[in-house]
Every structure is written in C-alpha cells, then in structure tokens.
Amino acid sequence: MQDDNKRFVERDRDWHPPAYAPGYKTSVARSPSQALVSLQTSSVSELTGPDFRQLRIGPHDNDLLMNFREDPALAGAAGLPVGERIILFGRVVDQFGKPVPHTLVEMWQANAGGRYRHKKDGYLAPLDPNFGGVGRCLTDEQGWYRFRTIKPGPYPWGNGINTWRPAHIHVSVMGPSISTRLITQMYFEGDPLIPLCPIVQTLKDPEAVETMIGRLDMARSRPMDCLAYRFDLVVRGELQTYFENQ
C-alpha cells in the first residue's frame, strides 16, 4: 500500500463556486445536473499526485518580462513588454498553515491591453511583441513562489451586453496530491470591476472572494523598478489517519 495513511480536509463546496451559476452563461450547459458521487473511502488514487522536482524549469520560466520575444534579436529595453512592471509572489500553505514546498505553480494572463496571445483571442487591443503571458515555478522549501510580469489589462467578453473581466492572472497549483489540485484567478486589490464580474460573482460568500485578491506590497516592491503584489494560496489541509479499520 502506497502513501494512503492520510486524509485531506473535506472541500467546502458551498465556499467554492457552484457548477451551475447562470449569471456566468457558459456554466449553464457545462454544469452536471446530477449530484457528485462522494468517495467515502479515500484511496491512494486520490491521496497521491505528481511531484515536479525533476521537471526542467528554465531560468526565465517565472519571468514574463524576459521569457517571450517575437524577434529574438531585440534585447535590452527594446525587448521589454509594455505595461506596469510587477512582482507577483506569495506562499502556498495548507489549511493548517503548513507550507507546501516544491509544488508547481503555473500562471497565465493577458497583456497590458487585455489581449491574450492565443489563436482564439480576436480582441482589438494589440498583441505585445515582447509578451507571451505564461509562467511557472516551484515553491521553495518554505512554500514561497515568485513571478515577474506586467499587470494585465481588463477585457470585454461576450456574456452580458457589456461585460468586462477585471484584471486577473490565472493561477494553477498542484499541492501534494490530486485532491489539492486547484485552479483559480488572482484579482488586484481595489479593482472596481471585481464586484461587477459574473465569474467572480459565481461565489456566494464575499469572504471567499477575498481569498482571490492579490494585495499591493510596498515592502516587496523594487524602488524605481517594479511594484509587488502578494497572493497567498491555501490548499486543502492534510491530516494523518491514526485510527482506521477499527
């Protein structure tokens, strides 16, 4: 038997957004109508997950100011993306506050004008020849991760007649098992589009929205260079099982 002497704190599915949230129109046809089937006895299938310490992560994989150039001959300031330079950093912990070391954190985002470098994005705002919009890194021993990027812009999308996404960065974290796997979005403190967004509003509890807000952190910013936003991620708490099978 492999690594199945633990449990994860049950996911509170009233805290997370429901599958069916009609204000976000795409969820209407993409939400199951049947109840989820709960696995009463967790097994090694759910209690384990991939460990990415052997994945070759490039030196600029977490630096979006440096990791994309349409013309590789461009260097120096000519090769930098346009926009608000920021550091995005934070700590991955579990629900008991325990750091989650060496876990994979991935992120993707639009450019300063709200345009994604994706075949399917046809928004009028132009692409930035020096911005790709993807990053990844592993958390360190204490659970910290760090990216350097530009602050993404808001963009319109076809939900309501005039619906705009707040500036956001998609953040993906693995944690210790597939039970802790989570994809979320980080929003920026003070953005007035946050309360107007149907995707944010899929959450019923305003406190849950707070868990998705990145906070301006002047102490971690670099004078004359870039600002910093802190975004801590909390994954499900890990418990040991002491009393099984009577």
């Binding site: 997370h16 008991f96 994706h118 399917k120 994005d121 919009g133 979320t184 929205v209 868990t211 994954v235």
Partner: peptide, 16 residues
C-alpha cells in the same frame, strides 16, 4: 484557514 476559492480556467487555459 479556508481553501483558496476555485475559478474557471477560462477560454485561454492553453496559454498556461
């Protein structure tokens, strides 16, 4: 602590 809330991966998940 509360788990960070989930959000959709959105239409451009492939970029990441």
């Amino acid at each position: 602590l509360r788990e960070t809330a989930s959000q959709t991966a959105g239409p451009y998940v492939h970029i990441g």
